[in-house]
């Protein structure tokens, strides 16, 4: 059995952290040999991303049980969904916590088996998280429709497929976020007589190319990968946008 303990240091005699999501290290102990491995959590992640990173780390290390002082309900749910048991309320050092668990004085509580309710809650959370920015985009699109004239748009998007595709791809690369926002903006641009070439290219690069996210991608994968991937994704977006419009027109 692989037992994970969330700690602030890379040693079994270090105390368990107050919250699982704030741990600096995950110590994974083999219950048979009592040998342990140390896994540092990615230090650049804070807040919500940090919690997810800890869950992913535990899942990828095939952990069977996590010992912690406190685990948030959201994290606990995700861990349980991935077959990881949770024993919370533990104090003291990692060594003491593992000892208590192996002696049987601490056990994981029975798991509630209501997958539909959990799926509904998770969907609601994802949906609600998407709404504020979507509402902002809708309100901004309303302003755009009334305040930005067609003359301004035609000065940028002239109707020539190649330049329109290029400008659309450039715009999409500069912004980021949920793809649904690009659909709303794309719909408004189409209403304003901007070509489908520009709108399609914008929607593709909105997600595949991330100028705003480039620093994070650089720090995760290095300059060569991040720059190459974004450059190639931009270059590939142009023919895809072009081909999509040509095929859609041919089909209709």
């Amino acid at each position: 059995m692989r037992i994970a303990v969330a700690t602030s240091g890379a040693d079994l005699d270090i105390g368990i952290v107050t919250r699982l999501g704030t741990c600096a290290y995950l110590l994974i102990i083999n219950s048979e040999t009592l040998g342990f491995e140390v896994f540092p959590r990615p230090s650049e992640l804070q807040g919500r991303g940090a919690g997810i990173a800890t869950v992913i780390l535990a899942v990828n290390q095939d952990v069977d049980v996590i010992l912690a002082r406190y685990v948030s309900p959201r994290m606990a749910q995700t861990l349980r969904e991935n077959g990881i048991k949770i024993v919370s309320g533990l104090k003291g050092t990692a060594r003491e916590a593992v000892g208590e668990y192996l002696q049987g004085s601490r056990t994981a509580p029975p798991e509630p088996d209501r997958p539909a309710i959990h799926a509904a809650r998770r969907s609601l959370r994802q949906f609600v998280a998407m709404l504020p920015v979507l509402l902002g985009v809708v309100l901004l699109t309303g302003l755009f429709k009334v305040f930005v004239s067609r003359q301004v748009l035609t000065s940028i998007f002239s109707g020539r497929p190649i330049t329109d595709t290029l400008w659309g791809a450039c715009f999409g690369s500069l912004v980021a976020g949920n793809p649904v926002n690009s659909y709303v903006i794309g719909g408004a641009l189409l209403d304003a007589a901007v070509s489908l070439f520009a709108v399609t290219a914008m929607m593709i690069t909105w997600v595949t190319v991330g100028f705003i996210q480039l620093p994070a991608e650089l720090s995760a994968f290095g300059a060569r990968f991040a720059v190459t991937r974004n450059a190639v994704a931009f270059a590939v977006a142009l023919p895809i946008a072009f081909l999509t419009v040509v095929l859609v027109r041919w089909l209709s």
Partner: peptide, 23 residues
């Protein structure tokens, strides 16, 4: 958030996952 996935993908790449899979 994509930032959380970067952490996972970085770990996978460090373990030998190809750049093809990441991209």
């Amino acid at each position: 958030p994509i930032y959380a996935w970067y952490a996972l993908l970085k770990e996978l790449r460090d373990k030998g996952a190809s750049e093809f899979h990441i991209a």
